[in-house]
Amino acid sequence: MSGQGMKPGLKLALEYGPIIAFFAGYMLLRDRTFLIGGTEYSGFVAVTALFIPLLAIATFVQWRLSGHISKMQIATLVLVAVFGGLSIWFNDERFFKMKPTIIYLLFAGILGFGLLRGRSYLEAVMDQAVPLRPEGWMILTKRLALFFLFLAVANEVIWRTMSTDVWVNFKTFGLTLGIFAFFMAQSRLFSRYGTGEAD
């Protein structure tokens, strides 16, 4: 099955299903502890341990069905595995909480590096989804790089100053809705610089 043949509902389920599952698992297990190998783990760390393979499976299924996954998805999976693994290994949930910060700083850095070279790396991963003229891609890339920096700062402030419950809600709903709202806010840019070639 090609990427264009994948049903939108299935694609959304594979992309956001693991995030929703993490939230549901945390709500169910947040007050529980688990004794494994003589070490006591919180419900948060236990859910993190379940989230990593779930995200890997969802990413693999999407690749098998579409024949393609973006570099951003690969980077996200690697960082989830690394920081989630550190949280489990050291039994410290802080590693997993700082993972979104690293992800968004990485994305902002990559986009910023491309801008310094006069290129939009965002175009390389989103060209088929959002056809824009070159000047439109440069504007969108600058805005998104700044937005990623904002999300990184927001994540740091929230996990360091607020409860785990607040952070989980922010990660599950705040980040997702924030990114959705960002692209909705770019409607004038899409209209002005669009090429009219969208499927």
Rank of each mutant, 00 (worst) to 15 (best):
T39I: 13
G37K: 05
G25R: 05
G43Y: 05
T39V: 15
I158Y: 00
F51W: 11
L86Q: 01
A154W: 07
V82M: 02
V153K: 00
L149T: 06
M138T: 10
R32A: 14
S66H: 06
A154H: 12
W159I: 03
L35Q: 14
K71M: 15
G118A: 05
A145F: 02
L122K: 03
I88D: 04
L116M: 14
S66V: 07
S163N: 08
P100F: 06
M98H: 07
D127V: 13
L149F: 04
T161E: 07
I158G: 04
F147K: 06
K97P: 02
S120Q: 06
I57E: 01
M126E: 05
I158M: 00
I36N: 05
D127F: 08
I110T: 07
T161W: 06
D127W: 09
P134F: 01
L151E: 11
L65G: 07
G67P: 10
V153C: 01
L149A: 08
R32P: 07
Y104N: 11
F95V: 06
R32G: 05
R117D: 09
R30L: 03
A108E: 04
Y41K: 05
K97H: 13
S120Y: 02
V157T: 10
A56W: 08
L116C: 13
E40K: 11
I36T: 11
E135V: 11
E135H: 05
L28V: 15
Q73P: 12
